[in-house]
Design a protein around this nucleic acid. Sequence first.
DNA 1: GTGCGCTTGTGAATTCGATCACGAGTTCCG
DNA 2: CGGAACTCGTGATCGAATTCACAAGCGCAC
Lengths: 215, 215
Amino acid sequence: MATARIPEATVARLPVYLRSLTELAADGQATTSSDILAERAGVNAAKVRKDLSYLGTHGTRGVGYDVRHLVFEVSRALGVANTWPVIVCGLGNLGRALANHTGFTERGFPVVAAIDVDAELVGTTIDGVAVHSPDKLAEVVAAEGVAIGVIATPAAAAQETADLLVAAGIRSILDFSPTVVSVPPDVEVRAVDLSTELQILGFHLQRDLPPEVNL
Amino acid sequence: MATARIPEATVARLPVYLRSLTELAADGQATTSSDILAERAGVNAAKVRKDLSYLGTHGTRGVGYDVRHLVFEVSRALGVANTWPVIVCGLGNLGRALANHTGFTERGFPVVAAIDVDAELVGTTIDGVAVHSPDKLAEVVAAEGVAIGVIATPAAAAQETADLLVAAGIRSILDFSPTVVSVPPDVEVRAVDLSTELQILGFHLQRDLPPEVNL
DNA sequence: GTGCGCTTGTGAATTCGATCACGAGTTCCG
DNA sequence: CGGAACTCGTGATCGAATTCACAAGCGCAC
Ligand SMILES: NC(=O)c1ccc[n+]([C@@H]2O[C@H](COP(=O)([O-])OP(=O)(O)OC[C@H]3O[C@@H](n4cnc5c(N)ncnc54)[C@H](O)[C@@H]3O)[C@@H](O)[C@H]2O)c1
Ligand SMILES: NC(=O)c1ccc[n+]([C@@H]2O[C@H](COP(=O)([O-])OP(=O)(O)OC[C@H]3O[C@@H](n4cnc5c(N)ncnc54)[C@H](O)[C@@H]3O)[C@@H](O)[C@H]2O)c1
């Protein structure tokens, strides 16, 4: 019964498949094929089949996959039945956008609390999210059963915020600050670095149009 | 003089190295080592050396790298001397946060314009960014020399926005919507999908704590 | 100038992921 | 029932990225 190890690269694609499948189900499609899924997910069909094969999923040869069943399988693999409460750290421009976003709650990641150093904010409720002082973090995490911490503080405060989250028992962190935070090995950090993304795009732009002479 | 092809994985790390190097320079460090850079960038030292070797960079054996020189080399490889104007499409919660963010301009990615369908917004200026109607996109892109388009519209409008951007001549897109947009092969899309990031964290949380029995 | 400790640069080995290619199962039709 | 059309599952192959491991270069001390 033990699901074999699912490769990281596959895990990263499962949410995309799940979205496509949900859309197909909403469209009333009862079955689908690796070709159709590949098209929707922007990958190639062989990859879809291999990915799904890691789930121990069984499509039907000559027919395709049953959409409802596949939704179930992928959901189970991702554990989307679970709800993982989120705390947002730093309610600036970005933090507010995140706190306000309804899409996360729909997917099982409700923002249940926030922290900020700004004395004006502490004690208030923004978009339905109560703002606490950072020194209350551990308390809030325990009370709300927070599983994931989001860092949306300025870069200078990112490491200390990560330390607080770790101390509070959080083992999953989504970091938006343009820094590399260090945490114990049993804590997973995913960094979403928008400047880096832009710089990668910039690199390719420069590469594709190289008729300039450099200094 | 032709710089050899730099692997994608390396390109993605260069911005992180550049940040670390800039910090080191600010700290007054004249030289550094692959060990120190590795520590700061959160990777291992062999990877740092291999990455830098693709730049044709020459550190000094027994000594390390000259920080100023390395800043120069990495900057040149990334083309950070260039400025790539950005347009933000969709000025909702996320779009406003992006438009307001100063960090991008500092790194050579000024937000020079925005588009939105909301008639209330069109014609106004938000955080110094003029908001235009989507049908003015091509015009604005040409006038401002926009190089990169950011999609921060609702998912339902993402594809049509991408089409508009492509039609306007944009070849680099950063997409925040939870969708896969399709574009011609010569256009690069980088998707930043926050829900997917959370779902990946959720997957690992579930995997690390598996004492439950499933349906 | 000789030796020692330090650090780079890089071939080689390894791991991981993507892709290919095809055997096998399914449906349908005549 | 036979064959054609379709689609999955997967071993095999290919390629990219990571990691290893060490020779070679550098600087300092004596
Ligand atoms: N706004 C964007 O579009 C954007 C884009 C890319 C990256 N980022 C990064 O995201 C982070 C947040 O950006 P922002 O624009 O929201 O910044 P911001 O300055 O608007 O907000 C930062 C918030 O964090 C709070 N804060 C400061 N120190 C704190 C601490 N120790 N603990 C808790 N809260 C603290 C501040 O009071 C403020 O409310 C930054 O690291 C920024 O570089 C933002
Ligand atoms: N807010 C977040 O924290 C967050 C997090 C993750 C993902 N996202 C995604 O980012 C996107 C934007 O999120 P948001 O919270 O800012 O949404 P939002 O609803 O606040 O804003 C969307 C904006 O886009 C505009 N718009 C709609 N159709 C348009 C079109 N065709 N052309 C141009 N503009 C158009 C709307 O007028 C509105 O101003 C969504 O796809 C959302 O799923 C947002």
